[in-house]
């Protein structure tokens, strides 16, 4: 006899039935992992599953912080500038600064934003 409880945590976690418990497509996550470097050889079946959840947390955190920027700007529409501001303001998102900056530069027709952001490591 199957224990229903064993599955409930995973099965109820999803956003829609179409993707089961995972709201992000596992095959796509795996492809992105593969493309992250030459030395990524084999990926266990559990790794994309863990990432699907980690990416949810990441999206939620960056969205939440971006929304704070939008609110401070007296707006109710989230813009990409809000994401850029949130990235700049948050240490753990440092690895995204180049990405959101080049995105902005492109939008402004090549204008370069000079950001003097110093991260002081207090650890």
């Amino acid at each position: 006899m199957r224990q229903a409880g064993a599955y409930s945590g995973l099965l109820c976690g999803g956003v829609s039935g179409r993707t089961g418990p995972h709201s992000l497509p596992l095959a796509r996550i795996k492809k992105i992992m593969k493309n992250s470097g030459e030395d990524v050889k084999m990926i266990s079946g559990e790794a994309p599953i863990i990432f699907s959840k980690a990416c949810e947390l990441f999206i939620e955190e960056l969205t939440r912080r971006s929304w704070i920027m939008a609110i401070q700007g007296k707006r109710r529409t989230l813009h990409k500038e809000d994401l850029a501001s949130a990235v700049i303001a948050t240490d753990i998102f440092d690895f995204l600064i180049t990405l959101v900056s080049s995105s902005e530069s492109h939008a402004v027709g090549g204008a370069t934003n000079v950001m003097e952001v110093e991260t002081i490591d207090c650890s």
């Binding site: 493309n35 992250s36 980690a54 990416c55 529409t77 990409k80 994401l83 995204l96 959101v100």
Partner: peptide, 27 residues
Amino acid sequence: AKISKEAKETMQECVSEFISFVTSEAS
């Protein structure tokens, strides 16, 4: 709240970068 398409597109890029960043460290 509303979300502009550009914000969604930027988030798409950020998530892929996040996956690559963490995967590189793990590998």
